[in-house]
Computed example of a mutant assay.
Amino acid sequence: MDGSIDSEKRALRAELRERRQQRSAAALEDASAGIRQQLDTLVAELGVRSMSCFLSTPTEPGTREFIAGALARGIRILLPITRADGLLDWAVAEEEGATAEGMFGMSEPVGELLSPVAVNDVDLLVIPAAAVDRSGMRLGWGRGYFDKTIGSMEKCPPVYAVVFDTELVDEVPRDLHDQPVTGVVTPTRTVTLTTR
């Protein structure tokens, strides 16, 4: 990775992380409700029966309400589990599914592990991001898990990153391995950016 790009990414991630930590509990609750509504609409429009999603951290736009509602409607959801080799295993989400702390201190599902290729059959990927630019380039949190997943898929379905409204920006620093997303889901809107 180019040193100047790496420095730009680190600085932007630190700024975004700080902004996220400043959000009030009420703002985060509102964001979670908005994300649920936006994802419910997206899933219905795309006719999704199987998808991947992620368990949001306390400072991310919340996905947990959406996951609970989607499971109740019979949608199959795969949740990521980090591995030391930089790939993701997957577990099928359950309504009362147990979680444990993963490799980076984030909550991950506990259950039967499915291999990295399990995600190849989903209709939609919903992934975390620090920011996304208007060309569809995503700035992740620096470990490359989702870039590797997207880049390795033979037939990649639509990929939407979940961000706060202010995190859809004009441009993010990018490197060769960075993968674009189809669009973003924010608490107030869903924006399609590319055709992938």
Rank of each mutant, 00 (worst) to 15 (best):
G3D: 14
G3T: 11
S4I: 11
D6M: 12
A11P: 00
L12V: 01
R13Q: 03
R19A: 12
R23Y: 13
S24W: 05
A27I: 03
L28Q: 13
A31P: 08
G34N: 12
R36E: 13
T41Y: 10
L46F: 05
G47C: 08
S52H: 08
S52A: 14
C53A: 15
P61K: 08
G62Q: 02
E65L: 13
F66E: 02
G69W: 02
G69P: 03
G69D: 11
A72E: 15
L78P: 07
L79V: 06
I81S: 10
A84N: 13
D85Q: 12
D85A: 09
L88G: 08
L88P: 09
D89Q: 10
A91I: 14
A91P: 01
V92K: 06
A93E: 07
E94S: 11
E96A: 12
E96F: 00
G97D: 03
E101M: 06
E101N: 00
G105R: 01
M106V: 14
E108C: 04
L113P: 12
V117C: 08
V122T: 14
D123V: 03
D123F: 02
I127L: 13
P128S: 06
A131E: 02
D133C: 08
R134D: 00
G136W: 03
M137H: 13
G140E: 09
W141M: 13
G144L: 10
Y145N: 07
G151M: 10
E154S: 14
E154Y: 07
P157M: 10
Y160F: 15
Y160D: 04
A161E: 04
F164V: 05
T166G: 03
D170S: 14
E171V: 09
P173F: 05
R174Y: 01
D175C: 09
T182E: 02
G183E: 07
V184W: 10
T186H: 08
T190H: 02
